[in-house]
Simulated assay, not measured.
Amino acid sequence: MPVHDRPDRGLRSIRLERRSVPGSTYLLTVATLYRRPVFLDDEAARAVCRVHTAQWPWRDSAVLAWVLMPDYWQGLVTLGERDSLSTLVGRFKALTSRAVQGHHRVNGWLWGRGFNDRVLGPDEDAMAAARHLVGLPLRAGLVVRLGDYAYWNTAWLFPGEA
């Protein structure tokens, strides 16, 4: 019987059985501790963005798109062979926490506990999911043109576009 069909299983036990399937594309969400709008501060936002420019934090996983909102990060990631989702997100959170100045952390913590993930189904278009993801600042009313928001990127963006 699949995990989701077990009536005696709670959400917590289902999440503990989270599967990391290499080659699958996931929509990941990581919220700041207490959903504080840390990334309204440009310096903090730029520090997190610099982590995306290095390949080594992601290893053999591919970041297809990401956006940094005032109180959370969301990314579309195709998982590689070398890491589980938990390991990948844990590394991202650790590196970005160290990159952001200490006054943005609460008792050393920048990010809240855990993360949310959703695997894209075989019939879901990753480019459409990326388009939806990077449109978040527009829908949140942070900017009137996507090009006016600095904290996002997508693998489908060519130099000079935005």
Rank of each mutant, 00 (worst) to 15 (best):
R12V: 09
A31Y: 02
L76I: 09
T32N: 06
M69I: 12
D42Y: 05
A31L: 04
C49N: 11
T78H: 07
L27K: 04
R15L: 05
L28D: 01
W58S: 10
T32S: 00
A54Y: 02
L28I: 15
L76G: 08
T53G: 14
T78V: 11
R15Q: 09
E81Y: 13
W66M: 05
L16I: 00
P70M: 09
Y72I: 09
A44H: 07
L40F: 09
M69H: 02
A44W: 12
I14D: 00
S61L: 10
S24A: 15
A31H: 13
R12T: 11
V77F: 04
V51A: 13
D71L: 02
P37N: 06
R59E: 05
G80F: 04
P37L: 04
E81S: 12
L76Y: 09
T53D: 08
T29P: 02
T29V: 07
L28Y: 05
A31Q: 08
V30K: 01
R35E: 00
A65C: 03
A65P: 04
V63Y: 06
R12I: 11
L64H: 13
A62M: 02
Q55G: 12
Y72E: 05
L68Y: 05
G80C: 09
R35C: 03
A65Y: 01
R50D: 15
L28M: 14
R50M: 10
Q74M: 15
I14H: 00
V63H: 11
P57A: 03
Q55F: 00
P37R: 03
V67H: 09
L40M: 08
Q74V: 13
F39C: 05
D60Y: 05
T25N: 06
L27T: 00
G23P: 01
V38F: 01
L16M: 11
R46V: 07
P22I: 15
Q55R: 14
S13Y: 06
R46E: 12
D60N: 10
R35S: 00
S20A: 06
G80Y: 00
L68W: 06
L33A: 15
A44T: 13
V67C: 05
R15A: 08
Y72N: 12
D41R: 02
D60A: 03
S13Q: 10
L68D: 07
C49A: 15
A54C: 03
V21R: 15
V48H: 13
Y34T: 10
R12H: 13
A44G: 13
D60G: 07
L28E: 05
P70Y: 11
A62R: 13
S24M: 11
T25S: 11
R18M: 10
W66R: 01
R36E: 12
P22T: 13
A65S: 06
L28F: 12
P22R: 15
F39W: 08
D71E: 14
G23E: 00
R19N: 12
S61Y: 05
A65F: 03
T29G: 02
D60C: 06
C49I: 02
T25I: 14
Y72H: 15
V21C: 13
A54D: 08
W58L: 07
L64P: 01
I14W: 00
S20K: 10
Q74A: 14
E17A: 15
A45W: 04
D41P: 08
L28H: 03
